[in-house]
Every structure is written in C-alpha cells, then in structure tokens.
C-alpha cells in the first residue's frame, strides 16, 4: 500500500463521519458540545488515518458477519456456562498451533480477537504467523471453525488468504 493513498478523500470522509456519529452518541446530540466535538473529531480522524491504513470493507460480508458473530457468541456463552455449572467440569483443554493464512495487519488483528471470543478457543500467542490457540475441549472441531472464520474475515476485508503460515 502506498503511503500517499492513506490520506485519500473517501477514507478521511468515512472516518470523519464515523467519529462524528460516535461524538453525537456520546453527547446525546447536544448542539453546544460541537465546539469541542468538531476539533476532537478532526484530531481523531487524522490520528486514525496516520495509524491505520485504509481498509476496503465489503459491506455485504460485514452485514453477514454480524448474525454469525452473535450466533457464535450465544453458543460460546452457553457452552462455557454449561461446563462451569456441570459438577464434573467437562473440559479437556489443549494448546494447539494454527498457521494463519491471513497476512499481518488489521484483518489479522480482527481475526485473532474474534477467535478469542468464539466458543472454546482462546488465542495465546502469535509468532511468525503461527497462532497458538488454547482450546477448552480438544475433541471439538476447532480447526474447521477457525478456518471458516478466517475465510469470513478475509472476505470482509477483501484480502486474499495467500499467506502459507510460518513460511519465513
């Protein structure tokens, strides 16, 4: 990605609108607050553009991701609650390695955080694109689940799963 493209108008505009919306929510739409709000929003926009390169989101995939994430969160909550309340604590934890196919960057960070919130998986370390994942139940099919969410994240950020994991 060229550094020039960072300060592109569409990126700046969309982030400006996003931060304005957040400010509006935080202040309950108080008109007076915009004296501080507009400078704050401009500063936030510049900071975010400087720190986070532009992302190309595929909105259709983002919308599809939301119900998936909610459904998996509910499953994860029920799963861990069941195991916590069960007299025998039915868990069989293990530490497994998963070679990430996503390249480093914002999509990868998003994926790692998502994996930690999905049922039965918790990311513990990232080293040379090898992700160490702690699983609550080694019998569960965690690999297929991580692969599926990795594909979803890649489609959402419209990036390729080219990285062959730990290649370097």
């Amino acid at each position: 990605m060229k550094p020039v493209s960072r300060f592109s108008l569409p990126t700046m505009t969309s982030r400006f609108l996003l931060f304005s919306f957040i400010w509006w929510i935080l202040t309950d739409g108080a008109v007076n607050s915009w004296w501080i709000g507009i400078p704050a929003v401009i500063l936030a926009t510049l900071t975010s553009v400087a720190l986070i390169p532009p992302v190309k989101l595929v909105w259709y995939e983002v919308v599809r991701f939301v119900p998936y994430f909610i459904f998996r969160s509910v499953t994860g909550g029920f799963d861990v609650a069941k195991r916590a309340f069960h007299p025998a604590i039915p868990i069989a934890p293990d530490l497994v390695e998963y070679p990430l196919r996503l390249s480093p960057g914002l999509p990868q960070v998003f994926l790692i955080n998502t994996i930690s919130l999905l049922p039965g998986t918790l990311t513990a370390e990232l080293n040379q694109n090898i992700l160490k994942v702690h699983v609550l139940d080694a019998q569960a099919n965690f690999k297929a689940e991580i692969e599926a969410v990795e594909q979803r994240v890649a489609r959402m950020f419209s990036v390729n799963l080219t990285n062959r994991g730990g290649g370097e």
């Binding site: 909550g77 861990v80 609650a81």
Partner: peptide
C-alpha cells in the same frame, strides 16, 4: 445468569487459560 456462570467458571476451572475462557465467553454474552 451468564455473569454468574463466568464467575463460577473463574472459581472452578483449573488453570489460568481455562479461567480466561470462562470470563471472555460468558461475559461477552
């Protein structure tokens, strides 16, 4: 109830890793 489940998991689960599972998943929901 899910917060309670997270807390019970925190107390009952055997090590730091499994306890983190209880906290993140149950509290998220």
């Amino acid at each position: 109830i899910f917060y309670l489940a997270g807390t019970i998991g925190l107390l009952r689960f055997p090590d730091v890793y499994t306890r983190l599972h209880a906290l993140t998943k149950a509290d998220n929901l």
